[in-house]
């Protein structure tokens, strides 16, 4: 008889614990304004990422289309995955000296793990992390980017290599 009563009591105790759980879920069911879901593709215009968010590596250009990369290659050495390639060319300066400057700063986004080591290592502060995170493309070759813009030149105050 005693075990029978315990059995009945355990049934009601079990039901009570279920009700306690349903109290929590019910509270949120009737307060839907408390939900935290972001409607992502719709809120694209208003979506602001944090300033330190690492989406891709970019090269900073000023309004005169000048960057501060002197092509020293420290970012290339510091990159753990080989996602940066520096191609430099030599030109003749006005006073007849040979000088090596950057031709193309090639960045393979597909290989990049966004570890921030290149940005931290850059001695002239030419690189930065961009906030764009929508990198989906139709062709893999589009993930290889040239970071220095077309026709850009090196800014005047940058220390030479």
């Amino acid at each position: 008889m005693k075990s029978f009563i315990e059995y009945i009591v355990s049934i009601f105790k079990g039901l009570w614990t279920l009700l306690i759980g349903m109290k929590v879920t019910g509270k949120y069911f009737f307060t839907p304004w408390k939900n935290v879901t972001q409607q992502y593709p719709e809120n694209r215009e208003k979506l602001v990422m944090f300033e330190r968010f690492r989406g891709e590596v970019i090269m900073l250009h000023n309004e005169n289309n000048e960057h501060s990369c002197n092509g020293c290659g420290i970012c290339e050495i510091n990159c753990p995955n080989g996602s940066i390639e520096i191609i430099s060319k030599s030109i003749l300066t006005a006073d007849g000296k040979k000088k090596r400057i950057i031709d193309q700063h090639i960045y393979h986004l597909g290989m990049c793990t966004l570890c921030n080591l290149c940005v931290k290592a850059c001695p002239s502060g030419a690189l930065a992390m961009g906030q764009n995170f929508e990198h989906a493309v139709w062709d893999r070759s589009l993930l290889t980017k040239v970071l220095n813009q077309e026709g850009s030149t090196i800014a005047e105050n940058v220390k030479e290599e």
Partner: peptide
């Protein structure tokens, strides 16, 4: 994490 470290999971 994202605000201070710049990433959510692979923080480095």
């Amino acid at each position: 994490f994202e605000e201070t470290c710049g990433a959510r999971l692979t923080v480095n």
